[in-house]
Design a protein around this nucleic acid. Structure first.
Length: 816
RNA sequence: GCGGAUGUGGUGAAAUUGGUAUACACGCCAGACUUAGGAUCUGGUGCCGCAAGGUGUGGAGGUUCAAGUCCUCUCAUCCGCACCA
């Protein structure tokens, strides 16, 4: 009996396809599990990260099928996006052809890996049918006021020639191509995600336990809620005059109202409206204007290098003391947070301190430590006691915040305010390969929505992709249309949507059965049955972007009445990266391992086994060729030793008491593996330990030669391992058990009942020897035996106590 | 700087959550079978030591009969955020 992965894997892959083994049932009375992996971008071929991702979800899906659940385990392709267009520029291929060719290739790879995806529900987000429903949702969102268009300062990637959302800028660079981004003033569509900021934050609590803590923290920090005080700073008379009375004040936000008496200057962002006004109206010297322009055009990285500022020659009046406070421009003040203006308290804020030192501005301390001296060479940012703070002097600084905010509110000079770091999601992209935004610009009616019956607004396909400009905009006819309201000639919006829009609702689309695909995006009934996703598996790199957007869409869809829950993903498993030689696999480093080559050499089962065995799912996985070899050898042994099994359609009945020690041990190991399997599949996800347990059981089986024990062992082990190495298990199961063993397995308690146990004996916590005792031996007898056995180590010592931990050890205590 | 995580043999990693540290596997060593072996099987393998024994979970303390696990301090590595007022 020779193991041949190629033959076996082909047989069962064909079998599963012919029998449609992995299609979910429409019987909504059955208990369900929705197992989902983050779907891939069709980049051409699978990499090991994909293999890990889908091996994990496949293990869950197959396990729950065996447990008799109705399992939805779908797959699709996140198939819009810039790489298709970049490939077009490079090779002259059409993005559509490139994309769908890649999808076909990758589907074959999925097939060769034995993944139990529903074939019927496969989709690509670039399918026009998908675009149709997406555009309809966009229209709904616009009607709800959740989508708007405005001009603003945007993150522009000079390489990809498009704008990016804040979340898509990583360390000042484009998340895709690493090019430093620059700010550009443009028209852009936004989703009003900030309207949901508070709910997105508070609902994180509902995910505790189901999501990794790390991801929850990252989302919390990203939303960045902070409470504080907002108030107006009014200009003095001289400044009003200088500003030609165009501004009488500006708004500032602080989270430290307790430091209000320490304000010694104020700072505006270089982009602030007052600054712009002064530039436009030539209220500043030419060289100062030039400096400000430099400051504005500097990349965010440059801007962070060193603090710099310019005095504007204006003063405002302190809201409580009425004293003059100078107004500066400072490069560290961000226009898109709060109001783009801050009150500066150098004595109690590190940034303000650095700035004040550099420009020799006054520093007024108003908080002192409860004990010890106030530091003079740095800002004191801790809690302390207020002084020089008018009627608030003497208060605890933390507690005084409440009093000070209350004072501002009572006197109508400011109010309690909450700010978020989260910004609205800029969603338009000036690129071709994406879903068109379904709007029309009409000279008479303005910006109007396309009619739903005209959807989808599909892309033009006879386009030229050169990398210059927007192909839809350059197309001779595509953008010309009739206004859906007045019927006159009008122009289509040529921007397309961010591809994160598609991945924000694909998990809902999967709930729709193919029969209804044309008719509706999904039905309420289908959603109610399948959602939420019971296990969502994917990379940690989506901790913020995709997962935040998908949560947002879920809440919006709920408020639109389509669904009735708040959170889409009940449990999230974030897999670690796949490494080779200690580094992330990448083409540039030349350390990639091609899944196709592994399948060709060892088969899919080996690849799957290695990936699950080498490390727990959340940890990094170091690729190791000889360990892959080891996985292969295990499967080979597992298969070849199934020759010991006598064919049967029922679990052999064994009289446990009549067995030899080795036989009993083998049964115990087999059932231990079963117990562990249930625990791993449902709670712990540490597949490495499950596989180790199965290996132990195999070793124990091999140390005995009772055919019934062999058969029972294989009955259970090939069921337990089926989610991991399905092909070889179906082969064994089919040959030996006519597949009757693939299903729920009962744990037999009798195999765990033992007549005697080994106990460790330690003296003062140090292990010395061991004893074998009957399970029902009395504590006294056990201790006596332990003392006798440990006599050698007790010479000259006085025994004070002995502690028995049942079934574990006896610890003999001698010292006082 | 802030936040999170991780440190256990030559390597990937276990440890039922305070109870016999190193399961399982890779590697290595020895043996068997073999014309041959990068196949297969058997045995061994934390470190020091001939041995008795000693020692050992990044480091230093502490709590406990008992600590990889709990507490305090510290070092290292990785990840995320980063002038958010």
């Amino acid at each position: 009996m020779q193991y041949n992965s190629k033959v076996i894997e082909k047989v069962w892959q064909n079998f599963w396809r012919e029998h449609k083994s992995f299609e979910p049932s429409e019987d909504f009375t059955k208990e369900k599990k929705y197992i989902l992996s983050m779907f891939p971008f069709p980049s051409g071929r699978l990499h090991m990260g994909h293999v890990r991702n889908y091996t994990l979800s496949d293990a869950f899906a197959r396990y729950y099928r065996q447990q008799d659940f109705n399992v939805l385990h779908p797959i699709g392709f996140d198939s819009f996006g810039m790489p298709a267009e970049n490939a077009a520029i490079k090779n002259g291929s059409h993005p559509k052809k490139w994309t769908y060719d890649n999808i076909d290739y990758m589907k074959n790879e999925f097939y060769a890996l034995g993944f139990s995806f529903s074939k019927e529900r496969e989709l690509a987000t670039s399918d026009e049918l998908y675009t149709k429903f997406e555009q309809a949702f966009i229209i709904d969102m616009y009607e709800k006021g959740l989508l708007y268009r405005k001009k603003g300062l945007l993150n522009w990637c000079p390489h990809d020639q498009t704008v990016l959302a804040n979340e898509q800028v990583v360390e000042g660079c484009c998340w895709r191509c690493d090019t430093p981004i620059v700010k550009k003033d443009m028209n852009q569509y936004y989703f009003k995600i900030t309207q949901y900021a508070d709910e997105l934050l508070s609902d994180l609590k509902k995910l505790e336990g189901g999501w990794p803590k790390q991801v929850l923290t990252m989302q919390e920090n990203w939303i960045g809620k902070s409470n504080g005080l907002a108030f107006d700073m009014f200009f003095d008379d001289a400044s009003l005059l200088k500003l030609q009375h165009s501004f009488k004040s500006f708004d500032v936000f602080t989270t430290r109202p307790d430091t209000i008496y320490g304000v010694s200057y104020t700072a505006l962002a270089p982009e602030h409206a007052i600054v712009s006004y002064m530039i436009t109206n030539a209220l500043l010297p030419e060289d100062v204007i030039a400096q400000i322009k430099m400051m504005k055009t500097a990349s965010s990285i440059e801007r962070q290098k060193e603090k710099s500022g310019i005095a504007l020659g204006l003063d405002v009046l302190h809201p409580l003391t009425g004293k003059k406070v100078p107004v500066w421009i400072a490069n560290f003040v961000l226009m898109d947070y709060g109001s783009g203006a801050v009150m500066a308290v150098p004595a109690h804020d590190e940034r303000d301190f650095d700035f004040a030192k550099k420009y020799d501005l006054p520093i007024h301390a108003v908080i002192k430590p409860f004990e010890g001296e106030l530091p003079i060479d740095k800002a004191y940012t801790e809690v302390g006691e207020l002084f020089n703070s008018g009627e608030f002097s003497g208060l605890n600084s933390k507690k005084s915040q409440y009093n000070i905010i209350k004072y501002f509110e009572e006197n109508n000079i400011g109010k309690k305010t909450t700010n978020y770091k989260l910004k609205d999601w800029g969603v338009s992209r000036q690129r071709y390969w994406g879903a068109p935004i379904p709007f029309v610009h009409c000279a008479d009616c303005g910006l109007v929505m396309e009619k739903k019956e005209n959807l989808p607004i599909a892309l033009a396909h006879d386009i030229e992709i050169t990398g210059e400009g927007n192909p839809l905009d350059n197309h001779p006819t595509w953008k010309h249309c009739k206004c859906p309201v007045c019927g006159k000639d009008a122009l289509r919006e040529t921007d397309t949507m961010d591809t994160f829009v598609e991945s924000s609702w694909y998990f809902l689309r999967f709930c729709a059965s193919k029969a209804n695909w044309e008719k509706e995006a999904f039905s309420k009934e289908q959603i109610a049955y399948w959602m939420g996703v019971d296990h969502y598996i994917g990379g940690i790199e989506h901790a913020i972007l995709h997962l935040l957007y998908a949560r947002f869409f879920t809440k919006v869809f709920r408020d639109l009445g389509y669904i009735q829950f708040d959170e889409p993903f009940l449990k999230l498993l974030t897999q670690g990266m796949v490494l080779k030689d200690g580094a992330k696999m990448s083409k540039s480093k030349g350390n990639t391992v091609d899944p196709d080559a592994i399948i060709a050499k060892y088969g899919a089962d080996t690849a799957r086994l290695f990936i699950l065995f080498a490390a727990p799912p959340t940890q990094e996985l170091e690729w190791n060729d000889s360990a892959v070899d080891g996985a292969y050898k295990f499967i080979k042994r597992f298969y070849e030793r199934s020759a010991h099994v006598e064919s049967t359609n029922t679990l052999p009945i064994i009289e446990h008491k009549a067995l030899t020690k080795e036989e009993k041990f083998a049964r115990k190991k087999v059932y231990e593996a079963l117990v562990r399997a249930n625990d791993v599949y449902t709670q712990k996800y540490t597949f490495n330990t499950l596989i180790a347990g199965v290996m132990e059981a195999m070793n124990a089986l091999n140390a005995q030669n009772n055919l019934d024990v062999w058969s029972e062992g294989y009955w259970i082990l090939s069921s337990v391992m089926e989610p991991v190495i399905p092909h070889v298990c179906w082969e064994i199961s089919s040959r030996c058990f006519s597949r009757h063993n693939l299903g729920v397995q009962k744990v037999l308690d009798e195999v765990f009942q033992e007549e005697s146990v080994m106990l460790g004996v330690s003296v003062d916590g140090k292990r010395r020897t061991e004893i074998e005792v009957d399970v029902d031996a009395s504590e006294q007898n056990i201790k006596a035996l332990a003392l006798e056995k440990a006599a050698k180590w007790l010479e000259g010592l006085e025994v004070k106590n002995a502690i028995l931990i049942p079934k574990k050890l006896v610890n003999i205590v001698t010292k006082g």
